[in-house]
Amino acid sequence: MAEKAAEFNPEVFKKTSDEKMSARLKMWLEMCAHCGLCADTCHYYLANEQDPKMMPAYKAKKVLDAIKKKGKIDEATLNSLYETVYGECTMCRRCTMFCPFGIDVASIISMARGLCVSQGKVPENLVKVIENYFAHGNQMALTQEDWIETLKWMEEELQEELPGATIPIDKKGANLLYTVNAREPKFYPMDIAHAVRVFHIAGEDWTMSSKGWDDTNLAMFAGDLKSAAYVSQLVRDAAEELEVKRVAITE
């Protein structure tokens, strides 16, 4: 995995882990019975010929071991932690459903991703994408013109097949605000047309927004909760400004 140059800093590591250590995370890290019942519930474990190192509690233990050293870890340990938390868990929470205590390994991994961020260890593409949210309000760095143009284009295409079908933009007080993954306007605009078709035929009172329309939140994947809050707020702001009743997100 490509990554930003590391800025290894034990004090920051310790400070970040103290900050991020919530009551639940602490409880989970301490209480795991090491019973192994979560092993064969993880797709990484199953897809890697039942490699014990892919079992959820092992990954959580790796995080705990790193935190216990209070930041006094070496580069190799940090690198191996980085590989585990980015490369060996999709934070799907399936293991949680099978753990007798309901230990949320995904939250532990997310926290450790945040620890890696504090050391400048983030996959390079993810850094770029997070910057895009701040600069353009969406992960693909689409400008507002591009976005509106794509919607207009889809509307025209659709009207050939379904006369009267429209894509309402910034309609106040609609029942539903439909948000999409920014990859759709960028690479698969037809996906938007499919949804419009459904809304049109169902007679839904809906709208799309000229801003705050990207419902992905890749900052969350980086355990970068401050940025993640900013990204979620974009959609929330749009919904509040348009006074819609609900927000629907793309599949």
Partner: peptide
């Protein structure tokens, strides 16, 4: 130690149950 699970079991199950 992890034996505290005799009580934390209830806490953990509760918070995860509500989260799901």
């Amino acid at each position: 130690t992890k034996l505290s699970h005799f009580l934390m079991f209830f806490v953990s199950r509760a918070v995860t149950g509500m989260e799901f």
